[in-house]
Write a protein that binds this DNA or RNA. Structure first.
Lengths: 139, 139
DNA sequence: GTTAATTATTTACCTGGGTAAATATCGGAG
DNA sequence: CTCCGATATTTACCCAGGTAAATAATTAAC
């Protein structure tokens, strides 16, 4: 069992995935990671920065940086919360208007990327991936 | 079929994989990406930079940068080839000495990471991943 | 043989992942 | 009330992926 080859393939596919998605998102002035954040906000509504990085399992400074870029490019706004330490992230009106169009691009690309595997294979893949990792899945 | 969830999981697992492997490689003064290059060189012998980036499916500037770091830290040496444009990358003697020890760390970590899936599941996972992507697999 | 296209590498600059340490604010112990 | 630990965010600095454009050297065309 060549586990190294498996990890190598895993890395390459994920890199390819985000590279190609970035290309498709270019026409919306957006990047893959930024899309992930927009999507979470559109589903869950306004969240503090900590809520977001914990949910996406990324470190806090990464979130600070990406949100700063997204604020500059007009996708989000950060308003003060009741607690003066935290900042609540909300989608701008322009973002809300543009979202359906972006969503269309994403869906189309995702379908292309899984074109050669069936729905049940997607399911299998998901469950196999879930089992990867050194940590227990229930934490 | 929530394809977005599949891609999200894929991203998270790969990020986790390289983050944790980086932690384990720290004691060897090495990073995941650098290990990948060392491994290729140990298997295939001296290669030009172009050989390496094409094999690893990475862009040329990424390779230039990482090799420069690896030369500074003493893992590799870049010697001129017959063609004055190209540089041939070779492992240093120290690198060859240290390799077996690094290999041990890698193998141990990899086994931990796949601990919850069987050999045949690893095989399934590999073949499912192979089918992902927008390009035909034969190019 | 000189010129033009191609090839190998590099430089400059972007996004995005990480860690360590600095602020700033909040909350609880005393 | 004061001080001290915890929490939210930021800053500074890594590594690693990308693109566009600049060199440098080789090859092909004429």
């Amino acid at each position: 069992m060549d586990t190294s080859a498996l990890f190598h393939l895993l890395n390459q596919k994920v890199r390819l995935l985000s590279k190609e998605l970035n290309e498709h998102l270019q026409k919306h002035d957006l990047y893959t990671s930024q899309w992930t954040i927009l999507y979470v906000l559109s589903q869950k509504g306004p969240m503090s920065q900590t809520d977001i990085w914990q949910y996406l399992k990324v470190e806090a400074p990464t979130m600070t940086r990406t949100l700063a870029r997204m604020e500059t490019s007009g996708w989000i706004h950060r308003k003060p919360g009741k607690d003066k330490r935290e900042r609540i992230v909300v989608l701008t009106e322009e973002a809300k208007e543009k979202l359906p169009d972006v969503m269309k691009t994403i869906k189309q690309f995702e379908q292309q990327f899984v074109a050669h595997i069936s729905n049940s294979e997607q399911d299998q893949l998901y469950h196999l991936l879930e089992k990867l990792g050194t940590k227990r899945s229930d934490e």
